[in-house]
Design a binder for these strands. Structure first.
Length: 251
DNA sequence: AACGCATCCAACCGCGGATAT
DNA sequence: CATATCCGCGGTTGGATGCGT
């Protein structure tokens, strides 16, 4: 019944990795590639659990990692992404080449939170801490209306997300779904989209689940495009039809 | 130099979804 | 179908380091 245990829990090393352990892990992955973290430690001759190996590789040993300080552009991008996604560090990391979710999470907690507070912005909701702050300095999370009409069509009408003009203009070389052309519209991303599953089955989905799935879908499909950073290596970017994902989740 | 406090960040923990048996 | 484990994620911890006194 069930799988066999991946490893003996006893006699496993914990804590900081040694150079020798790092070398064993790097050598093994260079030779055999990533994957099957369950069997990797034994095969590589490591007294570590697979989970620990995966973490070490992903957050520290991967050759494509960009070490060093975050740039101002990365700072701003993280802030924008966080305003859209919240603490979805892995999604945010997916939009910053060479950065890990752990690194971004740490950086957020140690630097960016403080930076936002110094700007008078609440890092939790990206709203001004006091009412006198300028609303244009803030990225509001999209407000989604899940009310259903007589035809049961669910309409998502998020508020426009007002972004910093300079940052958005930096993204203008990318033509993925940001609305407007070259006017002031450039700094307002139109997130409006409409989803209308036709099956009667959708009526059986409770509203909380609908909300969850729609938010999930919206975030998954539009994240990269919404901020103008389409990336073909990102699965979500390659999915162009919101309805396809929506229906795949509920049908 | 010594101490205490603050900050940083690698690593661990626990959880939920996916998957193998 | 039930159960146990894998995998990946976000939250948290604690040792190392920096800094001020």
């Amino acid at each position: 019944m069930g799988r066999s245990p991946c490893c003996e829990k006893a006699h496993m090393n914990k804590g900081a990795w040694t150079k020798e352990e790092d070398q064993l892990l790097v050598d093994y992955i260079r030779k055999h590639g990533e994957g099957c973290w369950r069997s990797l430690p034994r095969a590589a001759g490591l007294q570590r659990c697979g989970k620990s190996c995966r973490l070490r590789w992903m957050n520290y040993l991967r050759p494509d990692l960009k070490r060093g300080n975050f740039t101002e552009e990365e700072d701003e991008l993280i802030i924008k992404l966080h305003s859209l996604l919240g603490n979805k560090w892995s999604l945010i990391a997916g939009r910053l080449a060479g950065r890990t979710d752990n690194e971004i999470k740490n950086y957020w907690n140690t630097h960016i939170k403080r930076k936002l507070l110094s700007r008078g912005i609440d890092p939790n909701n990206h709203r001004p801490i006091n009412e006198s702050s300028s609303p244009n300095d803030v990225v509001e999370p999209p407000q989604v209306d899940f009310s259903t009409g007589p035809d049961q069509q669910i309409t998502i009408k998020p508020e426009p997300v007002v972004l910093d003009r300079e940052v958005v203009n930096n993204n203008n070389n990318n033509n993925c779904t940001s609305s407007g052309t070259t006017s002031d519209d450039d700094w307002v991303l139109n997130l409006e989209l409409s989803v209308g599953p036709s099956s009667t089955r959708k009526a059986n989905i409770d509203s909380a689940e609908s909300t969850r799935l729609l938010l999930e879908t919206q975030a998954a499909v539009c994240l990269c495009c919404r901020i103008g950073f389409r990336d073909e290596s990102c699965r979500n970017c390659r999915v162009s039809d919101v309805r396809t994902i929506w229906e795949s989740k509920i049908l």
